[in-house]
Computed example of a mutant assay.
Amino acid sequence: MKAIYMRGGSRRRDYRLFIPFLLLPLLLLLCVHPAVADSSTTVSGYYPGTIPAPVADFIAEPLTGPVPLQVSFTDLSQNSPAEWAWDFENDGTIDSTDQNPVTVFDTPGTYSVRLTVRNPSGSDSCLRLDYITVYPLETGRISIQSHPPQARVLLDGVEKGYTPLTLQNVAVGEHQVLLEKPGYAQWEGTIFVQAKKTAHIFARLESNTGTIMIWSYPSKAQVILDGIEVGYTPLIIREVGTGEHHLVLEKSGYIAWEETITVEAGRTFYFFPRLGTMTGTIVIWSFPSHAIVRLDSDNRGYTPLTIREVPAGEHLVVLEMTGYKNWEKTVSLGPGETEFVLGFLKR
């Protein structure tokens, strides 16, 4: 290195020692900024740590099937896309902006699907031509009859009407058929429908009710079933549901008859109860006879006397005759009982 001398007086100065210090800022710049030091460290104009533009990719499942066809799409794009635009028919209309959408194709045909993805560094599209194939749904018919008719029909859990019934345009494959009718057990079965053919069902419904036939002595007793008045004896009660029921017979002047019964499907149950009276009878004689009889102060006639349908309980019997002292007795009468009274009158 050549020395530089300055003339300015009697002293000569050597500036060679200051040259390295003048080059120091340039060296620091080269170390801090790699792009200045070596342009080969850049990648596509981005510095290390910058996200590259995305690369679009996707798959779908299923790719074929009958209408309506539900398809699930899965995004496989690279380089962290932040936005998704799905065009399921490749017609320029964005159908979904979800990353992994699910859609239903309800029209037969072949569909091309385009996915466009985007991030801050750019965008990319992936087009799959003729990717989804949807074919028409083949159908058949179901003819349903039942005994008895007018049973409610449910196909795959959906009400369709009442028997007899023919169902049109039923999808090919297995279907569950359920028949319901009040008073009968449910009928259910599986049927397979073939394209352009009619599948036939004839269901015989089993009764799930029973019958009650009831007489009484005396007749014309009111019949009450499970708290509901249903008529008077003799009586036939049809289509009684299976299980336990409470049966009551009532008639004025008689003790109510009641019983819990268990009705079984398809059976008839017979009852012929004898109703216990709620009254009794009092038979009265006197000596001498032809005495006036008062029952609870009411004049009922002359001895000998039979008083019927006297309410159960205690009653006062008084015998009166001119020239004799009154005779009296308290009678306790039970339902259906007969009490005998003999009074001896005294002067």
Results as ranks from 00 to 15, higher is better:
residue 202 F to L: 12
residue 190 T to N: 14
residue 55 V to W: 07
residue 240 V to E: 05
residue 115 L to F: 01
residue 138 E to A: 15
residue 235 L to T: 03
residue 208 N to E: 13
residue 75 D to A: 12
residue 216 S to I: 06
residue 194 Q to H: 12
residue 115 L to S: 11
residue 250 E to F: 07
residue 70 Q to H: 01
residue 142 I to H: 11
residue 130 D to E: 13
residue 32 V to R: 08
residue 85 A to I: 00
residue 223 V to G: 06
residue 57 D to P: 05
residue 107 T to V: 15
residue 79 N to A: 04
residue 310 V to C: 08
residue 144 I to P: 06
residue 1 M to L: 05
residue 27 L to D: 00
residue 255 I to E: 13
residue 160 K to P: 00
residue 288 P to F: 03
residue 49 G to H: 07
residue 261 I to M: 11
residue 245 H to Q: 09
residue 42 T to F: 13
residue 208 N to S: 15
residue 62 P to K: 05
residue 300 R to V: 15
residue 154 L to M: 13
residue 347 R to C: 01
residue 256 A to M: 07
residue 307 I to W: 08
residue 343 G to D: 04
residue 20 P to S: 02
residue 303 T to W: 09
residue 282 I to P: 07
residue 315 H to Y: 10
residue 121 S to E: 01
residue 63 L to P: 02
residue 197 K to A: 11
residue 275 L to D: 03
residue 161 G to V: 10
residue 84 W to P: 02
residue 89 E to Q: 13
residue 170 V to Q: 11
residue 161 G to H: 03
residue 220 K to V: 02
residue 196 K to E: 14
residue 338 T to M: 06
residue 197 K to W: 02
residue 207 S to W: 01
residue 275 L to F: 09
residue 263 V to P: 09
residue 230 V to I: 15
residue 205 L to G: 01
residue 126 C to S: 13
residue 83 E to S: 13
residue 148 P to F: 01
residue 242 T to V: 15
residue 310 V to G: 08
residue 274 R to L: 04
residue 112 S to H: 05
